[in-house]
């Protein structure tokens, strides 16, 4: 059985959107897929050693709220931190892994993590702030792997 390949582009840097790439990549690796995640734009936040990901109810009418909060109140200072704290507590109580834990599982399973060099330069990120063992590359690097992948997704 030849190894299947999964290529993911991770473009979002919020707590909620950190889950799909890491859940799918770690699971694919467990199923025997060779897996690569290409992190670009806000997705680069997911590679920081110190993850300070937040979730925002603003502009997200699909987010289930424990109680209805009018949109203007959602914009008040502190609301985002409060929602983030509540979301993290909820996840913990439901046995959902932390983003750090899922990312660690990906690293252990040798999922290839590639940071988009162009966005690193654009946002002037310090590469020392990223976790060890990642690679840096551009669109052509991504296609080298993605072109041979069985599944390719943009998140």
């Amino acid at each position: 059985m030849t190894e299947k390949k999964l290529a993911i582009i991770a473009t979002k840097g919020t707590l909620d959107w950190a889950y799909p790439p890491f859940i799918l990549a770690s699971t694919a690796a467990a199923l025997g897929y060779e897996t690569e995640i290409f992190f670009t734009f806000y997705g680069l936040q997911l590679l920081k050693k110190d993850l300070t990901l937040q979730v925002s109810p603003l502009g997200n009418p699909g987010m289930p709220m424990p109680m209805p909060v009018p949109i203007l109140l959602q914009a008040l200072p502190g609301m985002q931190s409060m929602m983030t704290m509540m979301m993290k507590q909820k996840m913990k109580s439901k046995g959902v892994a932390s983003v750090e834990e899922l990312r660690e599982l990906c690293v252990e399973a040798e999922v290839r993590l590639v940071a988009c060099q162009m966005t690193v330069d654009l946002f002037e990120f310090d590469t020392k702030d990223f976790i060890d063992g990642i690679e840096f590359g551009g669109a052509a690097t991504f296609f080298e792997f993605a072109g041979e992948s069985d599944i390719c997704m943009y998140i």
Partner: peptide, 8 residues
Amino acid sequence: LNCPLPIL
């Protein structure tokens, strides 16, 4: 534990 931890 919740998905995908049992599998992993």
